[in-house]
Design a protein around this nucleic acid. Structure first.
Lengths: 108, 108
DNA sequence: AAATCTGTTCGTAAAATTACGAACAACATT
DNA sequence: AATGTTGTTCGTAATTTTACGAACAGATTT
């Protein structure tokens, strides 16, 4: 009954996954990924939700580390956080590399 | 003010991400990925949570499509769902391929 | 048939998530 | 100084998530 502690990698992967676990936030990330400029207003413009809600979603993405905000008065510029993006990319890549289903008798 | 509808791909990515948005569920997927046999009992054994909670997490992973369960009386055998796993892998891969941060003036 | 093993479902409670309008703060313009 | 623009924060409400023990159901063993 050796209860495996959840390790830091799993925690971090879950944190990123949770941040991406809402369609609006995925849409935001997709939008940021293909933009050079990325002010709040432009982001809000493409989203079918209220300003306050958009701000809230951006806050969560920021807290997960996936994006960062910069104040450029009187606007706010958002962008993808390179380092975290890379880390998330690596974590997910490793994660999905773990199951070679074809050689796994369990998946059939 | 063209409100971009959230498309099906974003929805599906978010669905998978949400399912992976909890450390316990990441641990379950990791465990399943490296096992040939995968009965409920073995899964529960490695998790620091109650039986009922483990069952609940498995149910969510199943509803997201990431795993499937098979009754092998008197046990229940769980395994990764190959097709969904591959779909998720592809969706995340495409997603993380979207930002070439180095060429993006926004991320600096 | 009674007891056992296996895992799900039920009922419940606490906490977190999602969404909105209104109020607010910071800065620029008039 | 008054006004306008931009985006966050506040307060609130409805829903969902997470977790647990207890009760249950299916199958096997005694």
């Amino acid at each position: 009954m050796a209860k495996t502690a959840i390790d830091e990698k799993q925690q971090q992967l879950a944190r990123y996954a949770k941040a991406l676990g809402h369609p609006i936030r995925v849409a935001i990330m997709n939008f940021l990924a293909e933009q050079d400029t990325c002010f709040f207003g432009e982001i809000h413009e493409i989203l079918p939700i209220a300003k306050a809600t958009a701000s809230q979603h951006l806050k969560e993405l920021k807290e997960a580390g996936l994006i960062q905000g910069e104040i450029v008065p009187p606007k706010v510029k958002y962008c993808i956080n390179r380092d975290s993006w890379q880390e998330a990319k690596n974590l997910f890549s490793e994660f999905f590399g773990k199951c070679q289903c074809s050689k796994n008798g369990c998946c059939e």
